[in-house]
């Protein structure tokens, strides 16, 4: 009933957003229903694809005896630390390259040689160098998240329009003020874009690395359950991986909305028309 008191514009936005979420949920529900029904009616061989009920039944066991929560914690910890490290490295390198443009002429080719190598190809070397455990995961995730942040930040730095800096000076701003209030906001959208990509890449890498040579973690848990022929748990693992990936990107979107509020307002404006 409180909805009646909000002005029509806000009401419209809430209604629009709710309908969008409902539409999405509808499809998910439909899919689950279809899946369950197919399993019940025997249309799907349960050895190949477990039914939703089997999957749900397996969860309490996973949590109690299978260390599910620990595994989730490990994977999330690795991706967050790895992406943080890779992003900071990417940022710093981009700033250095931005300040000293000649560096790019020397180091550009060298760095570009590394870019096409998928982080996954680094796994053997990573395990060789760092053994089995957290360290190779950190290394690989950092590596994977480095390039998106580095490339996007450098691009943003190079495309800073001088006019804004001049106007800042024109209005009497000190160098510090020009840096924090003009330069940083100008490159922030691209940095965050790089971060989003880096996070997405990092999450994929962490799972892959865990499947191949690391202990604990969701990737490891999937492999383990595969060897134990616990197919429902494998699927549980996959669903959780998907959900966490979604949550991570959702969180980054919130960060973006807070740090770069003008971007969203542009989008809303266009949607209204």
């Amino acid at each position: 009933m409180e909805l009646l008191f909000l002005d029509s514009k806000k009401r419209g936005k809430i209604v629009k957003r709710t309908t969008r979420i409902l539409k999405g949920l509808l499809v998910v529900m439909l899919f689950l229903v279809l899946w369950s029904v197919s399993a019940e009616l025997g249309w799907i061989n349960s050895k190949v694809l477990s039914s939703p009920s089997e999957i749900i039944e397996g969860i309490p066991q996973l949590i109690k005896y299978g260390n599910l929560l620990t595994d989730i914690g490990e994977s999330v910890k690795r991706v967050l630390i790895g992406v943080a490290a890779g992003s900071i490295a990417g940022l710093i390198m981009a700033v250095i390259f931005g300040l000293f443009r000649e560096l790019e002429e020397y180091l550009g080719v060298f760095i570009e040689l590394f870019r096409p190598i998928p982080p996954i190809a680094w796994i053997p070397i990573a395990i060789l160098w760092f053994g089995i455990g957290d360290a190779p995961a950190y290394f690989l995730v950092s590596l994977g998240s480095f390039f998106p942040v580095f490339t996007n930040t450098l691009k943003a730095i190079k495309s800073i329009e001088k006019v804004y800096l001049n106007i800042g000076k024109n209005l009497g701003a000190s160098r510090l003020m020009v840096f924090w209030r003009i330069l940083v906001p100008l490159i922030l959208p691209d940095v965050i874009t790089g971060l989003k990509v880096g996070m997405g890449v990092g999450w994929i890498i962490v799972i892959t690395a865990e499947m191949v040579g690391v202990s604990h973690g969701l990737g490891y848990m999937i492999q383990l359950n595969r060897t134990l022929l616990q197919t429902p748990n494998v699927i549980t693992g996959m669903i959780i991986i998907g959900l966490i990936g979604l949550i991570l990107s959702f969180l980054l979107n919130i960060i973006e909305a807070v740090l770069v509020p003008w971007k969203k307002r542009v989008r809303d404006q266009y949607e209204e028309r």
């Binding site: 001049n166 009497g172 701003a173």
Partner: peptide, 28 residues
Amino acid sequence: TPNPNCPLILQNLGLFYWMTVWDNVTFG
């Protein structure tokens, strides 16, 4: 150098699009 004693209004304005109207005005 550019300085606040003789501000220049450009054709393209150079408004700080990432700042609100208030922040733009209070910048100087």
